[in-house]
């Protein structure tokens, strides 16, 4: 009797353990795969981006740039090189990021008019990227370790994951919910709640295409529900695995744009 009880308990504990083991990593796995799908397609990539920023009074500004990305490791460190082509007073301005997992990112700005390589603090990631409603963090990705994740719903084609920041003081939101495509793990929509719990910001993939076998967002939109403005990004001439050299992401190429961005 006693033995049976012990055995049953052990089996129950084992089952409970197993169930936990399956349920707990499930959401982490979804998030990890979503992170890979959204930010780590191929080993490297190049895209031409047109960002149209519309403010609450419907005035539009356009930013055009070429973005190069090189992954050091899938889901890990990455390097970004963003070369502006429009507006003309912004031409040849370069924004560069070395994304780290264990510390703040390293970020540089090259201002050609001043011939100046400026270092920007990596901590202020939730600041507008060149005036757009996208944040720096939307461009280079938010580390999955910065939030706790909870699978709150599963629909026919979406996983719905709620993300709560571990350090709420660092960010302007209280939580955000992401709708992830079950087929390819592409995050299709993210909704941010502000500190008062109101919907404040929506980031959406408006168009996803298959490029060289990688699901790729070719059009996305951010809406600022508080101020009323929005930014639409369109990605063209996307290419993966073009064999980018690591040394492109250094000071040398801030001052002398590599052939990959000179068309």
């Amino acid at each position: 009797m006693n033995k049976i009880f012990i055995l049953t308990s052990a089996v129950l504990a084992f089952i409970a353990g197993t169930t936990n083991a399956i349920a707990a990593p499930a959401v982490d796995e979804i998030i990890n795969r979503a992170n890979l799908a959204a930010y780590y397609g191929g080993d490297d990539g190049r895209a031409e981006v047109v960002m149209t920023i519309t403010d609450s009074q419907n005035r539009a500004r356009v930013r055009e740039f070429i973005i190069l990305r090189l992954d050091q490791k899938d889901g890990g460190e990455q390097k970004f090189y963003v070369y502006f082509t429009k507006p003309t007073d912004f031409k040849r301005t370069v924004f560069m990021v070395h994304k780290h997992m264990d510390r703040d990112d390293d970020r540089w700005m090259y201002l050609p008019k001043l011939a100046l390589v400026k270092r920007i603090a990596g901590s202020d990631k939730r600041t507008s990227f060149v005036g757009a409603h996208f944040f720096y963090e939307d461009v280079s990705g938010r580390s999955v370790d910065e939030d706790t994740h909870e699978l709150i719903e599963e629909t026919a084609d979406r996983y719905v994951v709620k993300n709560t920041p571990k350090n709420p003081a660092d960010v302007e939101f209280s939580s955000y919910t992401v709708w992830i495509d079950k087929k390819n793990f592409m995050p299709m929509k993210a909704e941010y709640l502000d500190k008062e719990g109101r919907r404040s910001r929506v980031v959406e993939a408006l168009e996803v295409k298959d490029i060289q076998g990688f699901p790729t967002v070719t059009k996305s939109r951010v809406q600022d529900l508080v101020s009323g403005g929005e930014t639409i990004s369109e990605f063209k001439n996307i290419k993966y695995n073009i064999g980018l050299q690591d040394n492109i992401f250094t000071e040398r190429y801030l001052k002398k744009p590599p052939k990959e961005v000179r068309n």
């Binding site: 703040d104 390293d106 270092r119 920007i120 603090a121 990596g122 901590s123």
Partner: peptide, 9 residues
């Protein structure tokens, strides 16, 4: 010398 420190540069 230039380095990130205390959340700044």
């Amino acid at each position: 010398l230039r380095a990130p420190m205390l959340g700044g540069i």
